[in-house]
């Protein structure tokens, strides 16, 4: 396999695609949003439980490519136990990572497993796949009532 392609489809990503974590519905979530990428038809529902500003449970459902599913799965594992502010901070850093902005080794370190998605930066057409779950979470936390779309 080509090395760029191997960077994009790392084993961790293939694993999360095959058996996504937290791929379920939460009954009575505190926050909920639907995300949609009209270009590829990906849809994602994000459910969040928050107690005292801490994300206590986070899950998703929907259909999408390996990149968007793995990103949602990794996000859900990573953000449980974080505060809403921390979650937004991680999203900003993650966004910098996948869009190829300079970020320090220290900051990448903080992203933990999410760093496997760095390969996306070589595939501009796939950045939206990697960030759909995050934009949707953002809108869930902000209680935007609208469906989130990757297209303005």
């Amino acid at each position: 396999m080509d090395s760029e392609l191997r960077e994009l489809y790392q084993q961790v990503i293939l694993d999360h695609n095959k058996s996504p974590r937290n791929f379920r519905k939460i009954e009575h979530p505190d926050h909920f949003a639907e995300g949609y990428n009209p270009l590829c038809g990906d849809r994602i529902d994000i459910y969040v439980k928050v107690e005292n500003n801490i994300i206590t449970d986070l899950s998703f459902q929907g259909s999408g490519c390996a990149i968007s599913k793995a990103s949602a799965s990794l996000m859900s594992s990573m953000l449980k136990g974080k505060s809403e502010e921390e979650a937004k901070e991680i999203f900003n850093r993650f966004h910098d990572l996948v869009t190829g902005h300079d970020i320090s080794a220290e900051e990448i370190e903080k992203l933990g497993k999410l760093a496997v998605l760095e390969g996306v930066k070589e595939f501009p057409a796939r950045v939206k796949c990697a960030s759909l779950a995050w934009h949707t979470l953002n809108s869930a936390l902000n209680e935007d009532k609208n469906v989130v779309s990757t297209e303005e």
Binding site: Y9, K18, C65, R126
Partner: peptide, 14 residues
């Protein structure tokens, strides 16, 4: 069934 068209598109491009 298990491979999204988007992933097919990226792989096949290579």
């Amino acid at each position: 069934e298990n491979i999204h068209p988007h992933d097919v598109g990226t792989f096949i491009d290579f």
